[in-house]
Amino acid sequence: MDQLIPPPALEVYDLTKRYGDHAVLDNLNLKLPPASLVGLLGPNGAGKTTLLKSLAGLVKPEKGTIKINGHDLSTQESEARRYLAYVPDVPNFYVELTVIEHMELLARAHNAMTDFTEKSERLLRRFGLWEARHQPSFTLSRGMSQKLSICCGFIRPSKVMLLDEPGGTLDIRSVSRLYEALDEYREEGGLAIFSSHQWEALQDFCDMFVLVDRGQTLAVGGLDFLRESADLPPEAGLRDIYLAFMEDDAGLDEPAENGDEDTARKPEEPPVGPPTPPVAPPPPRNAAPSKSAKPSAPNYRKPRS
């Protein structure tokens, strides 16, 4: 029976990363299956970007093991990197290369030139970069750079894709196209993990969520599982779940009066009063938009049941 369960695409054991005395990641553990889209959630400074950078092998943790598709990122780095794609929040391209050349180089490095022409055209057209394909990277706007970064992530074969705030600078249509592309990636068996603060999109789209705070995973699971774990009613949305898990951190972002950050992070008394009630019930996942109403959000594709 065990043989039917696919091995995890990403495994993280006891991941710890410190900057000085401050543990950004503190014995973090995580196991994520293939063919899924995972939203990474947490307050500012929770360690999301450090976690993604550690998973990408950009930041070496003090302790812990990361396995990408079964390959240890520390001891089998080359093998692990073959399966790993990374889309950073602020891309940093080669100034002397054009849009298409960046994609071509990555495809060549990964020996993925067989269908490069068709695949690159499809990607560039999907993200509205086709006309700019021969432009040097430094002429791209911030949003276009982000699109190129996403295209670079998709042009080469991978099993795990890490995306750090991928939709932050994208226009609405491009965000929609990104989720389409991610959906196809999932159908091909890929695991995509992305941090984002676009709650509605995440709620509609992700199969699973990883809630992190203070460098630790607070919860991992689908929407229903998280709702049950937080003792929330069935109509509670992702935002409510998030607030329920994070309510212990009340005052986290508020500056301490005496300037002592540690005091601000560790309130001596628990917060008084009832837990934060759900602000508004989310729209039903399968509700069709009214034809007369002007669409206010992109038409995201729904996750597979």
Binding site: A56, G57, L58, E77, S78, R81, R82, L84, A85, Y86, V87, P88, P91, N92, F93, Y94, H102, L106, A109, H110, S149, C152, G153, R156
Partner: peptide
């Protein structure tokens, strides 16, 4: 190395 995102997407280890 001043293009770390390209480095990450390269299919080799940092040592190599």
């Amino acid at each position: 190395l001043s293009h770390p995102d390209m480095l990450v997407n390269w299919p080799v280890s940092r040592l190599r």
